[in-house]
């Protein structure tokens, strides 16, 4: 039987304090900073009335920059390597929207299921996502439903909160979530039958809200595959300026680059660093010969869209895109992945 509780909104901060004290959790929640919703370590006042955050919570398990190891070579001696593992601090992230929970599932496929990335896993096992169901009308750019998600999806989350006006309905999704709900000093109370009924109704209404849609998403992988050599890509990418907004804000983009950053020359010293890479940049997959298989914005847009709707599907049996809409709302020139997929599907036999 799943665990369902009720939390008086006025006592949200008490629960967070209990998690910090009793569970040794470092709690993060969205805060409005410079007009941008950003996950921040929680101060004393948490308000969870945010739309989705500008950046997904992806950075908690896959930060934009991380050091793998440091190196040092004293002349005449063997080089010394020191592995740098992430801080084992446990972090609870509040207010994660369902599309971003589904983003975490996809990141896990890449870094935890398929290959064994110790850095990713070290972070991931210490992060808990406390989701917040979307029961207000979706943003104009949301399309989670048409890519297999839902505004009340629990995929990838440890707990799902649902706003019921003056209180939250709190549902455990994982064992970690259960433990967090039962933390010493927790102000959560048992959910009454009326609460359960209300949450069902609220969820039903949320799912019924109209959204934009990718038409026939099941057919998208095959359609995209057939479009590889289509001249349509050039037309679709005509306005593209080649910036990195779409992928740096995406909850599922995971391409990275490795570099040595020098910190000293005598002795030679430095760090091996992983940073996010970006398929929209002109130097992405540039070979050392100078040749680039994705040499223009058309090939790079195709890469991004086909990765989300075809290649990932071929590799993992699911669409990579979770419909969060960030790449749509933030694109400086209005390139719209929903419109692109639909247009390609229309034009390809």
């Amino acid at each position: 039987m799943s665990m369902e509780k009720i939390l008086d909104k006025a006592r949200l901060n008490d629960w967070i304090a209990a998690l910090a004290k009793g569970g040794d959790w470092e709690v993060h929640a969205p805060a409005l900073e410079d007009g941008v919703w950003t996950y921040k370590p929680v101060g004393d006042a948490v308000r969870m009335d945010h739309p989705n955050t500008k950046q997904p919570p992806k950075g908690f398990s896959f930060p934009q920059r991380e050091v793998f190891f440091s190196f040092e070579q004293i002349k005449g001696e063997a080089p010394r390597l020191t592995q740098v593992m992430p801080d084992p601090k446990r972090r609870a992230v509040f207010g994660v929207r369902p599309c971003d929970g589904r983003g975490a599932v996809r990141m896990d496929r890449v870094f935890a299921d398929n290959v064994n990335d110790p850095y990713y896993q070290a972070r991931r096992k210490n992060v808990a996502y406390v989701g917040l169901a979307c029961n207000t009308p979706p943003a104009a750019t949301c399309f989670c439903k048409s890519v297999g998600g839902s505004p009340v999806s629990t995929d990838g989350l440890d707990i799902l909160l649902t706003d019921l006006g003056d209180r939250y309905h709190v549902a455990a999704v994982t064992e970690t979530g259960k433990a967090m709900m039962a933390v010493a000093g927790s102000p959560l109370a048992d959910a009454a039958a009326a609460d359960r009924k209300q949450v069902k109704q609220v969820h039903g209404e949320a799912v019924a809200q109209p959204q934009r849609a990718v038409n026939n998403p099941e057919a998208a992988p095959a359609k995209l595959k057939a479009s590889f050599n289509s001249p349509l890509w050039e037309e679709l990418a005509r306005a593209c300026i080649g910036c990195g907004i779409c992928t740096f804000l995406c909850p599922t983009c995971h391409c990275f680059d490795l570099n040595d950053e020098m910190t000293g020359t005598v002795p030679i010293k430095g760090n091996r660093v992983r940073t996010w890479d970006n398929c929209q940049f002109p130097d992405f997959t540039m070979h050392s010969s100078g040749h680039n298989p994705r040499e223009n914005t058309a090939a790079r847009l195709r890469q991004r869209v086909c990765h989300k709707f075809q290649y990932f599907h071929e590799n993992f049996g699911m669409l990579q895109c979770t419909g969060c809409g960030r790449c749509v709302s933030e694109c400086p020139v209005g390139i719209d992945i929903v419109a692109v997929v639909n247009k390609v599907a229309e034009h390809v036999a």
Binding site: I241, F248, L249
Partner: peptide
């Protein structure tokens, strides 16, 4: 976050190779 949108959108930033690229 160094998405370089500010550079990409600027008509004056037309250099073929930018000092910040690899």
């Amino acid at each position: 976050i160094r998405c370089f949108a500010c550079r990409s959108v600027c008509p004056m930033c037309y250099c073929e190779e930018c000092v910040v690229d690899s």
